[in-house]
Each structure stands twice: as structure tokens, then as C-alpha cells.
Nucleic acid binder design. Structure first.
Length: 570
RNA sequence: GGACACGUGGCCCAGCUGGAUAAGGCGGUGGCCUCCUAAGCCACAGAUCGCGGGUUCGAAUCCUGCCGUGUCCGCCA
């Protein structure tokens, strides 16, 4: 609780120095209390004990006796506890502000190969990335959401080759044993075109595919040397697929500001300029066949230490282009954040170390572990994938049935609108509420759970506040005085933590911190709603109303920060 | 084989720059709608924090060994 720290720290400063403690290391020790019954901020006095040769409990007690302010102080078992007073809290929470960020942040996320529809696994990147984008904006930072389009290389090459050489009949024949496209998505290009990709991969895995391999190899080679015609052919192949993918993301509320093509850095010469610079580094080496690498082992990289950035034929590799891309990105922002799957850890390390070697900064990277299915890894080939499009449909249908059961008074159109919002929000929240580094098993029952720790739980609290607001029908009279019981105090306390949690989520790239905070805020509002009625016998309790409205506002902007759609009724 | 993650009640998960009685949710049991939307609220039961060592006044948190799971170790992307 930073607002409390602001008034506690100055008082503590003199008190601490009075008892003979030097320095301000204790400022780091002063932390949010773990036991919230004890206080809001706590200072363990054990570190002082050694320095002073005294009992920690006595030190805490002496400090407690010498400090006073608009907070409660107590000493318990070597801890010095500070607790915000209810009326002080009310006053400060009503006009709470969060230090506006002023960084220019470029967040690159998703950047999935445009070769097929999103499944839930791939979507973890997009949902985490977009949430970080939203939270940064809420924090006040200038943010650019960027999609790096992989428009060259093997994956697109395979797709382009297939579209050029295979007819629809051939594709159907090759994929004979497969299930075929869900009729619901026929006409959606990512679902349709992925069949060509799958058919080509199928052919490539069989004997006698040398000619195909050769043809694809030539395409890829041409693209890597910046061949305009081939790059255009590639774009024609992937563009409709990418559009289909973006349509899915858009339904999730995910939009991008800029798209940058990988080929840009080959075409504009920055990749070859980069390779020349790398050649002059002291850790540079050349393999027998003329391929170039950096020996990152000399800089402390363990395991495989050779990092190849140039093939024997002089062409660049994906990672090389990525380095050029980063150098370009750094010119346009203060902070750089990438969202990457854990499979990219080594690659990111190599890119980061190389950037360092060139005197550039290393970007922040948020890694996430993969989402798997209860049956095991997601695999398009084995058919055990959950497409995001299907998940969203299922979530919406499930939400619709719940709404219909709960609200017989609503029209079909209203049900539809609520169901869509609930479905999308629940899917997003289900993914962002867990720490990105946690392996995640997708379960339908969790994804479709609208109770407990879920988006609808937060949405529901917000609609309750909206309902009250509608009934009162006017803005609250400015009021920060009134009776403050435990539930009210807890809500005020929770609201006061809004800026703290937002700050942690943004500055440490941990969106789940803020997602979990919203649950806490909603829970506090629910208790407030139970104990502190706003409308009693037709009379409005102004203080309660003012607090309710404040909470409604925070819930609303908080929800938008994580991509939950703040409905006013549900 | 090497590198990097992760391992917390039946299930999911927070806490991990060391600090007080390990926080939630699901599921279980029992309560709460004549009262601003019960997608809610309250209570109860349920934890050798993977296992063994070490550092420390203090370890879920740091170090180390082992076990389990995942990812990577391409002149692929």
C-alpha cells in the first residue's frame, strides 16, 4: 500500500535513526503485511536486533512508542505494524490516482506463423501479450502492439508451394483420413488454407518427395535472398490466413498497431549490414563450409555455445533477422517487451547476448509454458487440438444457456450479447489468471467455469454496482464520511491497492498479479454489497453510494485492463 | 547426456529480491433469497510446501544432491 508508505516512511526514518540504525536498508524490509489482520505494512525488526544487540520485540515496541500519525501502530513479536485508519483510507481512496507511466513501450506478441488457425496453445501468447498491452496503457504508458510477420522461410514456403501445386481435390484426397473442416468455419481462410499446408506436410513426410523438397527449398532460398516475386507469392499465400487468424483475435478483443514483415530486414539491407558487423566481433568464427557463428561460450553461455547466424551460402538465418529486427525496434521505444513460448528460451538468450555484444540493450522477455490437453501435447496432425474459434463458440453457447436459466426476462438479442461477452471474457481470464511460467492443462470444465475465480465473478460484482447506480439514477454527492464497518474497510483497503498491483503487473510483466487482484477487489465488493446497503427504504446512504460508485469505476477500468468486457447487466 | 523451467490440501493455483498462524478457487459437508441481480454470501473439513542435506536468529522462498514433469540443445522457423 504505497499511499500508506508515503506517510509512514518519513516518520519511521527519524525514529529508526534515533535508535541508532544507519542507512535506509530497512526501507526494503518495510513491506506489505502478510497477515492483513495485523496491519497493512509491516517492518520486521529482526535485522536491527543484531546491529543493536537488543531484543527485536523491544526494538519494535520502542519504535511503536515513538511514532504516530494518521495510522495505527503496533508492535507484535518483533514486528512493527502499521494500519491505515478507516477514515483516512476513505478520504484517500476517493481521489486515488496512480502515478502515470511515461514510458514508450513496444510490445511484440503473438507473431505466429500465418499457416493455420489459432489453437488455445498458440493463443496463450496473444492473450498474455494483449493483456500486457492493455495494462501498460492503463498505467499511462505509450504502447505499440506489434506483430512480427514471418513472411519468409520454410513454413510459408510450404504453404505457398501447396497453394500453387495442389488442387482442392488433391488436398481432399491426401487428407482422406482426416476429419475435414468444421462446416462452421468453411469460408474462414485460416481453417480452409491450413488443409493445403497439412497436405503438403503429409506429402513431404513420404518417400519420393525429393522433388517437392527441392521446389520448396528453391522458394525458401529465393525468399531469403529477398526475391521480390517470391516474397509477393508468399504474401499472397499467407495473407488470407493471417486475416482469418486476426479475425479470431479480434473477437477476443486483441488488435495490433503495427505489422512488420521479417523480409523487410533482408530487403532493406540491414541484415547484410548486421552480418558484416558480426564478422568483426572478437568471438566471431567461421566453420569449414563457410558458415559464420559467434562463440557465445566465451561470454558464459552453457551448453551449445556456437550461435550460427549465416549459412555457408551467405544467406541469413531466422535469428539473424531477429537481431536486425530488434535493433530497428530499439530505435522506436524506451522499453521493449517480447512474449515468447518457452521453446524460444535458448534462441532469445542468443539474440540477447548478441545484442549486448553489439552494444545494444536486451529486451524484456515474458516466457510462457505450453498449454497441453489432458490427453497430452496439442498436435494438429493427431487431431487433438482445441481451436480458439471452437472454444469461443462453445464458451458462448454455454454462457447463453446459463443466462437463459438465470434471466428469463431477457430478449434473445440481450442473451446473445451477454453470452458473447461472458464467453470471451471467461476464456481470456482463464488463461491470464495463472502465472505464465506454469505449465497449463486445458480443461473444458475450467474454461467454461463461470463461478469462483473467473471473469463472470468479477463481471457480476460490477453489474451489481451498475444496478445500484441505475436505481439511484444520479452521480454521488462528494462524500468521504460515514460509518465504516469491517466490510467497508476491507473494500477501501482493496481499492487502495489498485495502483500497487497495477504497477507490479506492468513493471514486472506479470499480468496474473493484476488478474488475481481483480478477484480480490470483486470479493471485497461482494462483502460490501452484503453489509453496506446503499438504498435503504428508498433512502440513499450517500457515503455508501460514493464508495460503491468508486468501486464500480475501478472494477470497470480494471476489467478493461485485462480484456474482460464490463457489462452493465448480466 | 547437457542447459533452462516447473513440482504447494482430492483437483487447480497464489506466495518464491528469506520474515508472524501457507492465501484463494474447484470439489465435499452444513447454512443464507418477504431485503440494491444467489454467476453471490457465510461456516466447517482438508497441507510432511516432491525427497535429503546445507546457509540463517528465521527457509515454501537462498545453495546443493536426488526424484518427477516440461522445454530446448538444427548452418529449421
Amino acid at each position: 500500500m504505497e499511499i500508506l508508505r508515503k506517510i509512514v516512511e518519513p516518520r519511521l526514518e527519524s525514529a529508526v535513526s534515533d535508535i541508532g540504525i544507519d542507512g535506509d536498508f530497512w526501507k526494503n524490509v518495510l513491506a506489505v503485511s502478510r497477515e492483513k489482520d495485523q496491519g497493512d505494512l509491516s517492518l520486521p525488526c529482526f535485522p536491527f536486533a543484531k546491529q543493536l544487540g537488543r531484543n527485536p520485540a523491544d526494538i519494535a515496541q520502542e519504535l511503536a512508542d515513538s511514532i504516530s500519525g494518521e495510522f495505527e501502530v503496533s508492535a507484535i513479536g518483533g514486528y512493527l505494524n502499521f494500519k491505515a485508519k478507516s477514515d483516512w483510507l476513505a478520504k484517500n481512496v476517493m481521489d486515488i490516482e496512480f502515478n502515470p507511466g511515461e514510458r514508450n513501450v513496444l510490445i511484440e506478441h503473438t507473431s505466429a506463423n500465418p499457416n493455420g488457425p489459432f489453437h488455445v496453445g498458440r493463443a496463450r501468447n496473444a492473450i498474455l501479450g494483449d493483456t500486457l498491452v492493455r495494462l501498460n496503457r492503463l498505467y499511462g504508458n505509450e504502447v505499440r502492439a506489434e506483430y512480427y510477420v514471418d513472411d519468409m522461410g520454410k513454413q510459408v514456403g510450404v504453404l505457398a508451394w501447396a497453394l500453387q501445386n495442389l488442387s482442392e481435390e488433391q488436398v481432399d484426397e491426401i487428407l482422406d483420413d482426416e476429419e475435414g473442416i468444421n462446416p462452421k468455419w468453411s469460408g474462414k481462410k485460416d481453417h480452409e488454407t491450413v488443409r493445403w499446408y497439412q497436405a503438403a506436410q503429409n506429402l513431404r513426410s513420404k518417400d519420393g518427395s525429393e522433388d517437392i523438397e527441392k521446389a520448396i527449398g528453391e522458394l525458401v532460398h529465393a525468399s531469403e535472398h529477398g526475391d521480390d516475386a517470391v516474397l509477393a507469392q508468399f504474401e499472397e499465400a499467407y495473407k488470407p490466413v493471417l486475416d482469418g487468424m486476426l479475425e479470431t483475435l479480434s473477437r477476443l478483443g486483441i488488435e495490433f498497431d503495427t505489422f512488420t514483415k521479417e523480409s523487410k530486414f533482408v530487403v532493406d539491407g540491414s541484415v547484410s549490414a548486421l552480418m558484416e558487423r558480426l564478422e568483426n566481433l572478437e568471438i566471431h568464427g567461421v566453420a569449414d563450409n563457410g558458415a559464420h557463428y559467434l562463440d557465445l561460450g566465451q561470454r558464459g553461455l552453457k551448453g551449445k555455445t556456437e550461435f550460427f547466424y549465416r549459412r555457408g551460402d551467405g544467406s541469413s538465418l531466422y535469428a539473424t533477422r531477429d537481431i536486425a529486427y530488434h535493433m530497428w525496434k530499439w530505435k522506436q521505444c524506451d522499453d521493449l517487451v517480447n512474449i515468447l513460448g518457452e521453446d524460444h528460451k535458448l534462441q532469445a538468450k542468443q539474440v540477447g547476448m548478441t545484442l549486448n555484444e553489439l552494444g545494444e540493450r536486451t529486451p524484456d522477455v515474458m516466457f510462457y509454458a505450453f498449454i497441453k490437453l489432458p490427453e497430452g501435447k496439442m498436435s494438429t496432425r493427431k487431431g487433438n487440438v482445441v481451436f480458439m474459434d471452437d472454444l469461443l463458440e462453445e464458451a458462448k453457447a454455454h454462457a447463453a444457456s446459463v443466462v437463459k436459466e438465470l434471466r428469463s426476462d431477457l430478449s434473445e438479442a440481450e442473451v446473445e450479447k451477454i453470452a458473447e461477452a461472458v464467453g470471451v471474457s471467461a476464456v481470456r481470464f482463464n488463461i491470464i489468471k495463472v502465472s505464465p511460467d506454469k505449465g497449463f492443462t486445458f480443461r473444458w470444465e475450467d474454461a467454461l467455469s463461470f463461478e469462483g475465480e473467473s471473469a463472470p465473478f468479477v463481471m457480476y460484482s460490477h453489474t451489481r454496482a451498475c444496478s445500484i447506480s441505475r436505481k439511484v439514477g444520479r452521480s454521488p454527492v462528494s462524500n468521504s464520511n460515514g460509518e465504516i464497518g469491517p466490510a467497508m474497510h476491507e473494500l477501501l483497503r482493496s481499492m487502495a491497492n489498485f495502483p500497487d498491483r497495477l504497477s507490479i503487473a506492468v513493471n514486472e510483466n506479470k499480468p496474473h498479479i493484476f488478474a488475481l487482484y481483480l478477484l480480490e477487489l470483486a470479493t471485497a465488493y461482494n462483502s460490501f454489497y452484503r453489509d453496506c446497503h446503499v438504498i435503504i427504504d428508498g433512502e440513499v446512504n450517500e457515503f455508501n453510494y460514493a464508495v460503491s460508485e468508486k468501486a464500480r469505476g475501478l472494477l470497470k477500468i480494471g476489467m478493461s485492463g485485462v480484456g474482460i468486457i464490463p457489462l452493465e447487466s448480466m
